[in-house]
């Protein structure tokens, strides 16, 4: 697991990611990017919105 500065949390080797409400989301990629800015439109996954937030 690794936090990208200003970006998402990269998670490798997980089967499931649980969001803050405890809902389980199946992992279907070798590595996933979990939103760390709280602004994503596709929680819990990063959708690149942090770039707009950071710039704005």
């Amino acid at each position: 697991m690794r936090l990208c500065p200003g970006g998402p949390l990269l998670v490798r080797g997980a089967d499931v990611v649980r969001d803050e409400a405890g809902v389980a989301h199946a992992v279907t990629r070798p590595v996933v990017a979990v939103c760390a800015c709280g602004k994503t439109g596709r929680p819990p996954w990063c959708d690149g919105t942090h770039k707009v937030v950071r710039r704005g």
Binding site: V31, A33, G48
Partner: peptide, 14 residues
């Protein structure tokens, strides 16, 4: 690609 490339860009750049 919204979801996949949000991952790929981090891995590709870093």
């Amino acid at each position: 690609h919204v979801e996949a490339d949000a991952v790929h860009e981090q891995v590709a750049v870093r």
